[in-house]
Write a protein that binds this DNA or RNA. Structure first.
Lengths: 209, 209
DNA sequence: TTCTATGGTGAACGATAGTTCACTGTCAAC
DNA sequence: GTTGACAGTGAACTATCGTTCACCATAGAA
């Protein structure tokens, strides 16, 4: 069979491709549910293959597509597409959705990896009060706070001033340190005694539904 | 050796516990890096144990603590603490950080699971334009959009009106449908011909650092 | 029709994984 | 001292895993 394929051949190839894709999804789901990759026999069960050799061929193909990968010890590990905790990134709001649902050309990213650098030092706080509403941080939002970062001027920080905790912009002018709210109804804070910065806000998350 | 332990015994037990904890962390890191659980021999390398039996005992203990688990086939899978993609949740901004870093009593959640319901139908869009700045959605933010949800009045939606894509509040009054910006400098949109709602905004994410 | 690429079967085969057993060394309790 | 728990060693042993080989069946291309 040469390079050129007839019409019927194309149709068959397409259908087969679909089958492989579905099997890849099954494997992905398995990984997500079980927390580990399925063994070859388990993949066999998932895909309805009775021979481990068939599985071996399937895995080889999925490897070629980058769906599956192997580590140094040739053990199966999830490829970038699998492991599921990733979302497709489309363009901007203006661009809207690419009409024919051209997902493939869009890249994909993992929200966790995007939002969290050092997991050990990271915490979530729920926002109450509207002192930062001018910066788009509303009551009820969640802020992601990193205790490990060195606070710089311009950062939004969680700080303890005179016994109370607040979230404000940090502004440093020479040795002077000021905490600025993002709401004109609140006054800037010039800490008298000491200013304990507990962490830097690295991200904000708001959930609607 | 009965229940009561002497002072020196306590000290030793504490130190040993610390050791076990560190080993659990190593395993957790391995899982995160490699995408799979380490084998017993690999755990041995990680923990500095030369005998697989030692590893077996260690694993048994970690199982008891709920750090590790096994599935029906007795294969090692990550316990709830491992697998890492979870962040500790502390109280509110006002409450601030519990002073002595009392992490244990705070619960922990996974950002992905929080923000995404049906992964297949979910996309990320970058916001441009400030027509929703009144609702705390600023240019440069990322919105998480679910195509699968039925848009309800009050939702923020991504819609195509008269050929252009926008993000607005959806307001339904009877049969009438209006798209409301959250910025007084923009006018409400009453779609003439047709209104194609492509998805509902379920969350907003903004990254600072 | 014949040819051939390809998906699939089934069995035989190392290799490795995890279990189990007997044993050592150490340290706190007695 | 003696004793008892307990971390760790090392070596068998078995199950399972993934590879590999020969082979079948199908269906499009020639």
């Amino acid at each position: 069979m040469g390079a050129a394929k007839g019409e019927r051949g194309m149709e068959k190839a397409r259908r087969h491709e679909e089958k492989v894709r579905r099997r890849a999804e099954d494997i992905s789901r398995f990984y997500l549910r079980a927390g580990r990759m399925p063994s070859f026999s388990e993949i066999g069960e998932l895909a309805g293959l009775r021979s481990k050799n068939s599985v071996s061929k399937l895995v080889g193909r999925l490897e070629g597509q980058g769906v599956l990968r192997r580590d140094e010890k040739r053990r199966l590990i999830p490829g970038p597409a699998i492991g599921g905790r990733t979302v497709r990134v489309l363009g901007t709001v203006e661009a809207g959705f690419p009409s024919p649902a051209e997902e493939e050309l869009s890249d994909t990213l993992c929200l966790d990896d995007l939002l969290i650098q050092n997991r050990e030092a990271t915490f979530l706080l729920k926002v109450s009060g509207d002192s930062m509403s001018g910066a788009g941080i509303l009551p009820g939002d969640m802020v992601i706070v990193d205790r490990g970062l060195a606070p710089k001027s311009g950062d939004i920080v969680i700080a303890e001033v005179d016994g109370a905790w607040t979230m404000k912009f940090l502004r440093k002018k020479g040795a002077q340190v000021v905490l600025l709210p993002a709401n004109p109804r609140y006054a800037p804070i010039r800490p008298k005694s000491e200013l304990k910065v507990a962490g830097v806000v690295t991200a904000v998350v708001r959930k609607y539904r």
